[in-house]
Write a protein that binds this DNA or RNA. Structure first.
Length: 506
RNA sequence: GGGCCGCUAGCUCAAUUGGCAGAGCAGGGGCCUUUUAAGCCCUUGGUUACAGGUUCGAGUCCUGUGCGGCUCACCA
């Protein structure tokens, strides 16, 4: 049985009083003639019209949530807020009657959704205000919203007793959104980001597709999966860890440019930059290679930044990021030389191990040479890559789906993008030789075997698809959550995910 | 999973060497016709995350648990 606080019990009593007067506390329908921003815009246009002799207002009906109330005896001021903005109401007893004003004061609370009819006017202080002739309840709020007070001051919203407890905000994101406009703005930018990506790719003849989330064999990345079960088919299934292997099957099928935006699931640790489910963009582009993909990547991200931030210059955690192409390009080998003075081409495996140890990097029991290089890179280079940077040409043994360089079989045509110290993108010239691919899977399975005692799944159907012939292509993956972090200046991935994963509260 | 830090009223936060658990806002009762954190008077509200322990006495010290934050590991 739910228990109600004293405040909630008070509000339930008000709700009953509304009912007793015949006012429905939750009517089925609202009437609204204007959004709040439309109303204020209309008012300012009529006010600036010199031929219009003071006839600058019409009756209108606005809807929104009560965010402040100030009662003054025979009148009351209040603000209501809708998705477009906020406006002040003036409720006068000589307009609506003394009893009606009393009812407003007694039975309407902050957080209630209300409907108010009246004409717009300006108060002495020049604030556009609805002079209310009629109002009614649209939805009674039983529980008080967490933020106590806030107010607009010359465009700047000042918040008092802000609701900023991180845990409480994530657990009750609805309340967080209701009282923190800057949080709503993050998710508007997130939505705009995805729209802009779709627009950019659609304009270039990429076809948006959907591939299975439930997969009998997981692949395309090196993460541990979530597993589940189909009861009727008696089939164990995995939630996908990437889209890659299915999207490339579509190139076999004759599509030349495909992309997917969707959710990946990785059963790994959570951190400021990792959530168990996250949103990924992947595209595959026939008859292109990783250099073409680099060009498209910098154009695409700059386009998105321009769309949602109105600029390719973006503030991030005290840095000024510049997404304007061309971005810096540096090979993995050069980057390590520059930031750590290690040239792995001229280093033995033992020397790489000692480099790791001197930098307090913990080495897994069975680390390949490529893994050592990658760990050195993460430790020594990654934190320094603030401006958008392509790091290209990676060790073959940590890139089983990428094609080797023509003159260097131990290096693959692969790049990653780093911005603000975050890994943002991963892309390569895709391996399309089924014999080579099978050998890579086998090699990878052997390493995996020794590490964990489990065989890495061998996707025979994927090899079969590739055996029919896959055009040469460049492939690309980008973490959308991290891109949104960059575009909204957020240090935590949880701030850009509406309902981030939390342990159950008890 | 390891380490560090945190958890006090609906919200934001105080509480001296261990000594009566407080404020602002929100809530309730009043006054008030141009306020906008409105103001003024009065007022309700607490299992100090939870369970133990030390002590005459614990929000404060100790142990454990839960949840969170940061961080390390893991995550090509």
């Amino acid at each position: 049985m739910r228990s109600f606080t004293e405040i909630e019990q008070n509000r339930l009593a008000k709700l009953e009083r509304l009912r007793e007067r015949g006012e429905h506390p939750f009517p089925h329908r609202a009437e609204r003639s204007h959004s709040i921003s439309m109303a204020t815009q209309y008012f300012s246009e009529l006010s600036s019209d010199k031929d219009n002799n003071g006839e600058n207002s019409i009756e209108m009906t606005l809807c929104g949530r009560l965010r402040s109330v100030r009662t003054m005896g025979k009148l009351a001021f209040a603000h209501i807020e809708d998705v477009s903005g906020r406006i002040q109401l003036l409720i006068r007893s000589d307009a609506i009657g003394k009893d009606r004003l009393k009812q407003f004061e007694a039975d309407f609370d902050l957080g209630d959704f209300v409907q108010a009819t009246g004409k717009l006017m300006e108060t002495r202080t020049g604030e556009v205000t609805l002079d209310v002739s009629n109002f009614r309840m649209l939805a009674k709020s039983i529980s008080p919203l967490p933020a106590a007070k806030e107010v607009d001051e010359e465009g700047d919203r000042k918040v008092y007793s802000a609701f900023d407890n991180v845990e409480a905000r994530y657990r009750e994101r609805y309340a967080d959104l209701a009282v923190n406009p800057h949080v709503r703005e993050i998710f508007r930018i997130r939505s705009g980001t995805i729209s802009a990506l779709r627009y950019f790719l659609d304009k270039r003849d990429f076809l948006e597709v959907e591939t299975p989330v439930l997969q009998p064999i997981y692949g395309g990345a090196a993460a541990r999966p979530f597993s589940t079960h189909h009861n009727q088919l008696h089939q164990d299934l995995f939630l996908r860890i990437s889209f890659e292997l299915y999207l490339k099957r579509l190139l076999v099928g004759g599509f030349e440019r495909v992309y997917e935006i969707g959710r990946d699931f990785r059963n790994e640790g959570v951190s400021l930059t990792h959530n168990p489910e996250f949103t990924q963009l992947e595209f595959y582009w026939a008859y292109s290679d990783y250099e073409d993909v680099m060009m498209l990547t910098e154009q695409m991200v700059a386009f998105v930044a321009g769309e949602v931030c109105d600029d390719t210059l973006v503030s991030y955690q005290g840095h000024k990021l510049d997404f304007q192409p061309p971005w810096r390009r540096i090979s993995l080998r050069e980057a390590l030389i520059e930031y750590s003075e290690i040239d792995y081409v001229n280093s033995s495996d033992d020397q790489l191990v000692s480099h790791c140890k001197s930098r307090e990097i913990q080495i897994p029991s069975k680390a390949t040479r490529g893994k050592l290089i990658e760990m050195l890179f993460s430790k020594c280079v990654e934190p320094h890559l603030i401006q958008p940077t392509f790091v290209y040409d990676y060790p073959r043994d940590i890139s089983p789906l990428a094609k080797s360089k023509e003159n260097d079989p131990n290096t693959v045509e692969r790049f990653e993008v780093f911005v603000g110290g975050l890994e943002l993108c991963n892309a390569f010239t895709e391996l399309n030789d089924p014999i080579d691919q099978e050998q890579r899977f086998v090699d990878m399975g052997r390493d995996h075997n020794q590490e964990s005692g489990e065989a890495h799944p061998l996707d025979l159907d994927y090899l079969k698809a590739m055996s029919y012939g896959m055009p040469p292509n460049g492939g690309f993956g980008m973490g959308i959550d991290r891109l949104v972090m960059l575009l909204t200046d957020q240090a935590s991935i949880r701030e850009v995910i509406l309902f981030p994963h939390l342990r159950p509260k008890e």
